[in-house]
Amino acid sequence: MKRLAKAALIVRLRDQLAEHGSWCGETHLQKAAYFLQEGVGVPLEFDFVLYRHGPFAFDLREELVALRAEGLLSLQPQSAPYGPRLVSTPDGERLVKQFPKTVGRYEGQVRQVAGFIKGRGVSSLERIATALMLVREHPDSDNESLAGRMMEIKAHISYDAAMGALEEVRRFLDVVEQPV
């Protein structure tokens, strides 16, 4: 996908996340983009690795920096103790309108992901995104063994929390559409 089309989708995803009650920090956008790419198959082509709070794409981080530098997103400081949120700018909204076909093609997937992410906080996002990564990497493994693996790589996640996240992700994957 061309860079600007991808940028339009990122801005659209941010807007949908905001509409569904997300805080829209960088972590929220990282995990939502991961679900969009690996959960519902939108070809964003970011290179996710296991890092901070689960799957994390450094190239997405660089793209978010570039989008801010180019005035399509901005980082809005919040009063202490909260960190900043990403917000769309008028130029970002204009970019989304310049890609009606691309945005339209993936609108369903964007909404599904935003609806799943909703107002989740960072710890919940970490669990579900790590769960999705494990499900994708080990398609034949059952939830019990994946929960064990999650506890190995994220020592602060309990067995019950890992199992809950895996079950939730599998339910999500059962109902999501794949892009045409």
Partner: peptide, 17 residues
């Protein structure tokens, strides 16, 4: 600790990352 995103505003919910 990094400035927290909305749900993690107390030290109990902080993780090493």
């Amino acid at each position: 600790p990094r400035p927290q995103e909305k749900d993690n505003n107390d030290s109990d919910s902080l993780v090493p990352e």
